[in-house]
Design a protein around this nucleic acid. Structure first.
Lengths: 167, 167
DNA sequence: ACAGGCTGGTTGACATGTCACCTACCGTAG
DNA sequence: CTACGGTAGGTGACATGTCAACCAGCCTGT
């Protein structure tokens, strides 16, 4: 029970700023996306990931891993998107258990209509407010944090030979 | 319909990194907080904000504004926290419509028990991974983005004399 | 072949957040 | 005082996400 190292003023500022930015940026991007394209951010992410994949189709587990979603969440969400005609499920030929999500023409149309506006919003509210050095620094710093977290993460099926054996 | 300026490689890296960090950091911090203190992040934020306020009590609208929450969300969430004995509602003497949330002893105990571990987690997964320059840069950059968003935000009751009249 | 464990995906119950609407109260104009 | 518009907060229906089972198909050892 050593006395914790609290955040100093500089650190506090960064942490609060990060959280506030996170919240406001999220609200605004979601608002514009919903208004302009009728999509939620999760919708957009799914469609975007699919549209960038050759064949516009992915195994569910592959998609879930990329998006860092639980399988359950993905399954529920795809059900809703399927209702709206944005994606379809197909059988997986390799693996009888699996299935594959594919972009429908409507889904492709939706993402193509939404993308320019969304990118513009990302620029307007974030990227274009930063200097080139800041953009680079943000990329560097976030990737470092991500690598650290991804490394120490305990995915359900990780091997037991882990460098940090339950600190 | 001018051709959109897509993100270049550097910008793309920053944007993806940001989103991935956002997600992973969130998952991990929430996981640790739930495990170690039995609190969700929203719980923590409410308790933390209250505990830093002289008198440990706040008007609901004040708290909602600080946290950037809708009043509805706050009302629902406080109901749940009240059930668990972390906060209480009191009448507001100034304003017959209003009410005030106050920290209970249990609530104070909960936040005091949770804070050291949470700060340590924030350090371990974010702050301590950054150089002092990066921390400063993060503070600067996030605050710039926040100010921009807050400025252009259209709060329900904003005046119509806005510098950006719906581009 | 087939038992047993693992993986991919789904489902239902529940927790959480959002939206539209409601009521009570404030403040001001007449 | 009374009417009226605006604000504070609460409520219920619904959308979304989580968690814990669950089923089906794969895989390996015998």
């Amino acid at each position: 029970m050593t006395e914790p190292r609290w955040l100093d003023e500089r650190e506090e500022r960064a942490w609060r700023g990060y959280r506030r930015m996170r919240r406001l940026l999220d609200l605004e991007l979601a608002r514009e996306l919903a208004q302009d394209a009728g999509l939620s951010e999760p919708d957009y992410d799914v469609l975007s990931d699919l549209s960038e994949t050759p064949g516009q189709r992915l195994r569910l587990s592959e998609l879930a891993d990329r998006m860092l979603w639980s399988r359950s969440r993905l399954s529920h969400h795809l059900g809703r998107m399927q209702q709206r005609g944005l994606v379809t499920r197909e059988e997986c030929t390799d693996d009888g258990r699996g299935s594959v999500v594919a972009l429908t023409p409507a889904g492709r149309q939706a993402i193509e209509a939404a993308a320019p506006g969304h990118v513009a919003a990302v620029r307007r509210h974030l990227i274009d407010l930063l200097s080139p050095e800041e953009v680079t620094a943000l990329g560097t710093l976030t990737h470092r944090v991500v690598d650290q977290l991804a490394g120490s993460r305990r995915p359900p099926n990780a091997a037991a030979t882990d460098p940090t054996p339950e600190g």
